[in-house]
Design a protein around this nucleic acid. Structure first.
Lengths: 240, 240
DNA sequence: ATCTTGCAGCATGCTAGCATGTTAGCTACA
DNA sequence: TGTAGCTAACATGCTAGCATGCTGCAAGAT
């Protein structure tokens, strides 16, 4: 705990946060979104101290909405608040990455089983449409857009379970993995491979074959984790 | 939304909440625990209005800790807060029950796979010990104690995955199921059956057989859901 | 020179009061 | 008599300032 602070004098005094106007909802919600984006971006550096009063000044709001936002981030383990001492941006944690990956895999595989059994033709058509979009984006070399379509592909499947809160939960589970992903250098052929893996998942669902869908999804999800584990080996100093 | 309020004039004015001294942590934490207990108990009736100012008066604290507690409950869908209008105890929702059950099943089945593969002998011994405790409690007719041991059995398995936050998450997923469970009348032979199902799960883990453990766990978890679905059929008016 | 101890600074937690938007009931009118 | 509009009460969201407990440095004793 003491060590924590000694390791983290880098105080981000004048970091940039997206202005609140860019986000919807109440002030707390806006502050939450803005901070979360900055944390996932690594704009707010892992381990950095995050003074609530500073955030108030930066965003021009009082401390209640900031407090509430920080409390929410704490429940997601994105910040670590020590009473009467300070609030810190969570370090990258191998444990959190592994847990997040485990969780998302659990959710997505369960979803595969359900969706392979009950998906409507219209839903499958939506997935095919999304996949065609992915192909176009890859052909255009629009990596940014491809990531978005990728995320949507997964969210579509989760939403087809009929459970409203599931996509949100899956996203939350993934945040630590996603943050660590920023440290990976892009691999040339990876986008093409990802596309193939998505095709395999859709093929399993199309065939109404839960086992095929599950195994394709498992293979797909473990790619990223494998690459992250390699990063942990090579650059352990990046993780707390 | 308007209909909500028309259906729910029953204002719980003088409901009993456990005093804050019984809970650990900060005030927010205490308030959160106290409210959550009351909601899960059904002491705070589903659909009832929950005035923050009233809670302040009842517990003798200011509005910030109450606000933070309520915000946390809102993320778990245990209360429904409408800005500038009011806060309401969530109604029993078939959707939420199904989603909670789906989630817990996803998590526990994934855990089974992992634990069947990597459990240490000491961990399996802990499970056997817990199971013997369950037998004693059943023999003594201590149903309350049995429920506690039951919960611990499941938590042990989840903790053996090595993921710290998993048990907490599973509990959170289960809250809506657990709340609905209060409406079920106790079935005579059910405790004995539960014990058998736990034995089957442990047998699968002991045999290091992921598929057996998964299928035993699935069978076990679906018992309660099946009984709840029957309740939904028979008494739909209990669910919003 | 090192370790202990006291003090000043400071970050969070909490309390109290203001601003904003909603709800419900009453009144006036068709 | 039924309906539309207005008004007063009210619940939450936010702002501002006080209380509590931790941190880190510095001075003094061993």
């Amino acid at each position: 705990m003491l060590q924590d602070r000694l390791e983290t004098p880098p105080v981000d005094a004048s970091t940039r946060l997206r202005p609140l106007g860019d986000f919807p909802g109440s002030l707390s919600q806006k502050v939450y979104s803005s901070l979360k984006e900055a944390i996932l971006d690594l704009t707010l550096r892992p381990g950095a101290i995050l003074r609530k009063s500073e955030v108030c000044a930066l965003l021009g709001v009082s401390r209640s909405p900031v407090s509430e936002a920080v409390a929410r981030l704490a429940t997601e383990a994105l910040v670590d608040v020590v009473p009467q001492a300070g609030t810190f941006v969570a370090r990258l944690s191998v444990e959190e990455v592994r847990e997040g990956a485990f969780l998302r895999e659990a959710l997505e595989l369960a979803a595969m089983e359900l969706v392979a059994g009950q998906a409507t033709d219209d839903q499958l058509a939506q997935l095919r449409r999304n996949l065609r979009l992915q192909e176009v984006l890859v052909a255009d070399g629009d990596t940014q857009g491809f990531y978005a379509a990728d995320a949507q592909f997964h969210e579509l499947i989760l939403s087809f379970t009929g459970h409203r809160r599931l996509p949100q939960l899956s996203r939350t589970a993934w945040v630590h993995v996603d943050r660590a992903r920023r440290l990976l250098l892009p691999t040339p052929g990876r986008v093409q491979e990802t596309l193939e893996e998505h095709r395999a998942i859709l093929a399993g669902l199309d065939a109404r074959n839960p086992e095929r869908a599950r195994s394709a999804a498992r293979t797909h999800l473990r790619q990223l984790v494998t690459r992250l584990e390699r990063l942990v080996e090579e650059r352990p100093e990046l993780f707390a």
